[in-house]
Write a protein that binds this DNA or RNA. Structure first.
Length: 588
RNA sequence: GGUCCCGUAGCUCAACUGGAUAGAGCACCUGCCUUCUAAGCAGGUUGUUGCAGGUUCGAGUCCUGCCGGGAUCACCA
C-alpha cells in the first residue's frame, strides 16, 4: 500500500465534507492537493499543501483554511497529531502502532511489496538496445541496455503490461558492409591470403566464425558468384550470427527481450510504403529541397530535391527527408513505419531508450509519431542515456574504435560482474553523464553503493541465521515470514527502528513515482538510503547491547526485531529485483 | 550558428516533477571499533543552487536572456 495515496484519500474525504458544508465551494478542483513526506522528518510523517493550493479559490487565508481542514483531519482519529506550520502546511503524524503494523504488511507482501496496480494493465512498449547487428555489444550500449531493462521491470511491477523490444537495423548499408567483411573472412577460411582488412570494412575477429560457417556450408561455391548474387545470403547469415552474439552479450547482463523486430520485415511487408501513403493522404509529404544547416558549413552540400515530411508542423525545426536523392528510403522512413506498427499492436505508450548521440533525432521521431497516429497526447517518450566515461583509478580508459579494439560489454561484465554493472549504470539520472571507475566499483566500502546495499541484505540474512543458532539465538524457533509477521511489533519503539520502518513504508511511493517519471535510478538511490538506515540501526547495537537484534533474554523483542530486519530484507530484495541485481545472502 | 543535455558544498552526486531551514558520500576535525559479519559507526564543519530578470502564497525545479561544459547538426546508421 502506498500510505501517501491512502492518506490522500482520507484528506479528500474531509475536503469533500467541507464542500458539502459550504466551507469550500463545490466547484473547486482538488487536483493539486497532495500528501507527501515532509522534507524534514521533524515536521511529522505526512504533509499536505491543501490549504495553500485551495486558499485562493476558497477565498480564505491559507492558515485559516488550514485550521478548518486540520479540525476535520483530527476528528478522523487517524492521526496522532495534526499541526499547521509555515505558510499553511498541514503536518500529520501517525501513531507508533500504525508504523509497527507496517512491518507485518511488508512481510505479508514479501517480494511483492512495492508492486501496485498503478498502470491498470496499460500496454507499454519499451524499446532498448537496438544496436546494429554488426558486431558485439560495446560498453557504450551497456547503459541503455540496463536502463531499458530496469525501466521495463519497474513498469511491470507497477501494473503495466510491458513488451521488451529490440529493433534490428538489418536493412541499411551497414549490413551490406558487414556482409562484405564476412565474405572476406570466408575467403580467409578457404585458405586465401586476404591481407589487411581494407578501410571501411569491419576488422573484428568476431567475423572469423561467420567466414568459417560460410566455408563449411558452401565450400568454394560462393567464389564463383557475383557480389549481387552472394550478398543477400551472406548478409542474412551474418546478421543472424551477429544477433546470436548480441543475445549472448545481453544474457550476460541478464537481459532478454520479448520481441526482436526486423527492419527488413517492414520493407518486405510493404509497411513502409503504407505508412508513407497515410502521411501523404494527410498532406504531410512533399517534394522539396532542404537548406544547408545554418551556421555549420557542410562542404559537399548540394541542393537536392527529395521526398520530405512536414515535421515542422509537429514542432520540429526543419522538415526531414524520407527518401534520399537517389530515391531510396532514408532510415527515417522505416522508423516511422516501425513506430506506427507498435502503435497498431496496441502500444499507445511507447518508450524508446537511445544513446546521447541520437538526441537530435527526438523531435523528428516524436513529430512523426504524432502525425501518423493522429494522437495529441504523447504516445512516445524518448529517454536519452548520456555517455559513460570509463575510468581506472581516475584515469580515462583509452578506447580506439578504429582498430576494432574497443571495450566490449562482455569485458566489463567479466571484470566486475553483472550486479556491479547493472547497479552502477542506474546510480545516475539517465540524462547525466556517468563515470564508471573499474577500481571504485569493486571496492568494499560505503563509497561503493553496490557493496553497501548488498552488504545490508547479506548482513540481515546472517543475523537471521544466527536467530536459530543454539548459542546466539533461539534454536528451533520458527522464523518464517508468516511466523515473524505475527510477532508483537509494539516492541519496536526505538527511534532508529521506527526510522527504518518509515523508510521501508516509503518504498511503494518511490516505485510509483519512479515508474511515472520513467526514472529507475530513483530505486537505486532509495536502496542506498534504506541500507544506510539499516546499517545505522545495526551499529546502534554496539553501544546499546539491549538494542541488538538478537537479545537472548528477551525473546519477544528479538522476534519483533527479526521481523523488522527481515521486512527490510524484503524491501531491499524487491528494489534490487527492479534493478536486476541479485540480493546476495552472504558476503565472501 | 541551430537543437538537445548538464551546471547544486573543496570533489562525486541527490532533492520524491513547484514546497518549509537545499541533502548524502568522499575529504577534513573529534570520539568509538576484543561487535548479532571485519570491510565501519556516532557527531562536527562545508552553499550567492553559473549570472540577470520574470511567473506566484512559494523557484535548484517553470519561462526569457546571457555565461561555461558536453553531445549532435542535408543524403550516413
Amino acid at each position: 500500500m502506498n500510505i501517501f495515496q491512502h492518506f490522500l484519500s482520507v484528506l479528500l474525504d474531509q475536503l469533500h465534507a467541507l464542500q458539502a458544508e459550504g466551507v469550500l465551494g463545490s466547484d473547486i478542483v482538488l487536483d493539486k492537493v497532495a500528501v507527501e513526506p515532509p522534507r524534514d522528518a521533524s515536521h511529522g510523517d505526512l504533509a499536505t499543501n491543501a490549504a495553500m493550493v485551495l486558499s485562493k479559490a476558497a477565498g480564505m487565508k491559507p492558515r485559516d483554511l488550514a485550521g478548518k481542514i486540520s479540525e476535520k483531519l483530527t476528528a478522523t482519529g487517524q492521526f496522532s497529531s495534526v499541526d499547521i506550520a509555515g505558510p499553511g502546511f498541514i503536518n500529520m503524524s501517525l501513531s507508533d502502532a500504525f508504523w509497527q503494523g507496517q512491518v507485518s504488511d511488508v512481510l505479508k507482501a514479501g517480494a511483492g511489496y512495492g508492486s501496485s496496480n498503478l498502470g491498470q494493465g496499460a500496454k507499454v512498449n519499451v524499446e532498448y538496445v537496438s544496436a546494429n547487428p554488426t558486431g558485439p555489444m560495446h560498453v557504450g550500449h551497456t547503459r541503455g541496455a540496463v536502463f531499458g531493462d530496469a525501466l521495463a521491470n519497474l513498469l511491470e511491477k507497477t501494473g503495466h503490461e510491458v513488451c521488451r523490444e529490440y529493433y534490428i537495423n538489418d536493412a541499411g548499408a551497414q549490413v551490406d558492409v558487414l556482409a562484405r567483411s564476412a565474405f572476406l573472412r570466408y575467403r580467409e577460411a578457404l585458405g586465401q591470403d586476404i591481407g589487411a582488412i581494407p578501410e571501411g570494412l569491419y576488422p573484428g575477429d568476431y567475423l572469423v566464425p561467420v567466414g568459417q560457417k560460410l566455408a563449411a556450408d558452401h565450400g568454394e561455391a560462393l567464389l564463383e558468384k557475383s557480389e549481387a548474387d552472394w550478398l543477400p545470403e551472406v548478409r542474412a547469415l551474418s546478421t543472424s550470427m551477429m544477433m546470436d552474439m548480441i543475445r549472448d552479450d545481453l544474457a550476460a547482463l541478464g537481459i532478454t527481450h520479448d520481441v526482436f523486430f526486423s527492419e527488413t520485415s517492414l520493407h518486405e511487408s510493404g509497411a513502409v510504403e503504407e505508412t508513407l501513403k497515410l502521411l501523404d493522404e494527410k498532406g504531410l509529404i512533399y517534394q522539396g529541397v532542404l537548406e544547408p544547416p545554418k551556421g555549420k558549413t557542410v562542404e559537399d552540400y548540394e541542393a537536392r530535391p527529395q521526398t520530405l515530411f512536414k515535421s515542422t508542423e509537429f514542432g520540429d525545426d526543419v522538415d526531414r527527408a524520407l527518401k534520399k536523392s537517389d530515391g531510396s528510403w532514408t532510415y527515417f522512413a522505416p522508423d516511422i513505419a516501425y513506430h506506427f506498427d507498435k502503435y497498431n499492436r496496441g502500444y499507445t505508450n511507447q518508450v524508446d531508450v537511445w544513446g546521447a548521440d541520437h538526441a537530435g533525432y527526438i523531435k523528428r521521431m516524436s513529430a512523426a509519431v504524432r502525425a501518423v497516429t493522429g494522437s495529441n497526447n504523447d504516445v512516445l517518450d524518448v529517454k536519452i542515456c548520456q555517455l559513460v566515461r570509463l575510468l581506472r583509478n581516475g584515469e580515462p580508459v583509452k578506447m580506439s574504435k578504429r582498430s576494432g579494439n574497443f571495450v566490449t560489454l562482455r569485458e566489463v561484465v567479466e571484470e566486475v560482474g553483472r550486479d556491479v554493472v547493472r547497479f552502477m549504470m542506474l546510480y545516475r539520472k539517465n540524462d547525466a553523464t556517468l563515470d564508471f571507475d573499474f577500481a571504485k566499483v569493486t571496492e568494499q566500502s560505503r563509497d561503493n553503493p553496490v557493496f553497501y546495499v548488498q552488504y545490508a541484505h547479506a548482513r540481515i540474512c546472517s543475523v537471521l541465521r544466527n536467530g536459530t543458532d543454539e548459542e546466539k539465538g533461539f534454536a528451533g524457533e520458527d522464523l518464517s515470514d508468516a511466523a515473524l509477521s505475527g510477532a508483537d511489533m509494539s516492541k519496536l519503539s526505538d527511534d532508529a527502528e521506527l526510522a527504518l520502518i518509515k523508510q521501508m513504508a516509503a518504498f511503494p511511493r518511490v516505485m510509483e513515482s519512479a515508474a511515472d517519471a520513467h526514472e529507475p535510478h530513483r530505486i537505486a538511490f532509495y536502496l542506498y538510503d534504506l541500507a544506510g538506515a539499516f546499517h545505522s540501526l545495526w551499529n546502534k547495537g554496539k553501544d546499546h547491547p539491549d538494542l541488538r537484534f538478537i537479545v537472548k533474554e528477551d525473546k519477544g523483542a528479538t522476534l519483533a526485531r527479526l521481523a523488522l530486519i527481515r521486512a527490510a530484507a524484503c524491501v531491499l530484495a524487491a528494489g534490487l529485483g527492479v534493478l536486476g541485481v541479485e540480493p546476495i545472502e552472504e558476503m565472501r
